[in-house]
Simulated assay, not measured.
Amino acid sequence: MIAFIDQHKDEYGVEPICRQLPIAPSTYYAAKARPESKRTVTDAVTTEKIKQVHKENYGVYGARKVYAALNRAGHRVARCTVERLMRRTGLHGVRRAKGPRTTVPGPLSERPADLVRRQFTAPAPNCLWVADI
Rank of each mutant, 00 (worst) to 15 (best):
V94W: 03
Y67Q: 07
Q52I: 01
R117D: 11
G59L: 07
L91K: 02
A78T: 07
R76S: 08
V53N: 06
P35Q: 10
M86R: 04
E11W: 11
T102C: 03
P125K: 07
R39Q: 15
T102K: 15
R34W: 03
H92R: 10
P112D: 00
Q52S: 06
G59T: 07
A3F: 06
T27W: 03
L115M: 12
P100W: 04
A63K: 07
Q20W: 14
G74A: 07
L91D: 05
Y29K: 12
K32S: 03
V14I: 14
R96A: 00
G99C: 04
R76N: 05
Q119M: 12
V45Y: 09
K9Y: 06
R118M: 08
V66S: 02
R111M: 04
H92A: 12
V60C: 13
L70W: 05
A31W: 13
R88I: 09
S26E: 13
V60L: 12
T47K: 13
H75Y: 08
D6T: 08
C80M: 14
C80P: 00
G106I: 00
W129M: 12
R101T: 13
H54K: 05
T40S: 15
R118G: 02
E110Q: 08
P35T: 06
A69L: 02
R95K: 12
R96F: 00
E15D: 12
P125C: 01
A122G: 03
E110I: 02
P25Q: 04
V116P: 10
H92C: 11
I23V: 15
T47D: 00
A63G: 03
P25G: 05
A44W: 01
V53W: 06
Q7K: 13
K51T: 06
S26C: 13
N57S: 14
T102E: 00
T27D: 01
R39W: 05
T103W: 09
R34D: 11
E83G: 11
A124E: 14
V45H: 12
R64W: 02
D43S: 03
R84H: 11
T42E: 03
H54W: 15
R34A: 15
I17K: 06
K9N: 07
V66F: 04
I133P: 02
R111P: 00
G62N: 02
T89G: 03
Y28C: 07
L128R: 10
E11A: 14
T42D: 01
P35L: 12
I23D: 03
V104I: 08
Y29L: 09
H92M: 09
V41H: 02
T27I: 04
Y58V: 01
I2C: 04
A31S: 11
M86Q: 11
R19K: 15
T121Q: 05
A73C: 02
E11P: 02
F120G: 08
R39N: 14
L21F: 13
H54N: 11
N71L: 06
R88H: 10
G90D: 01
T89L: 05
A69Y: 07
E36Y: 02
Y12D: 04
A68W: 00
G93R: 01
D10E: 13
R34F: 10
C18T: 08
R87H: 09
A78G: 15
I133C: 11
D43V: 00
R95C: 09
T42N: 01
R111L: 05
P22I: 05
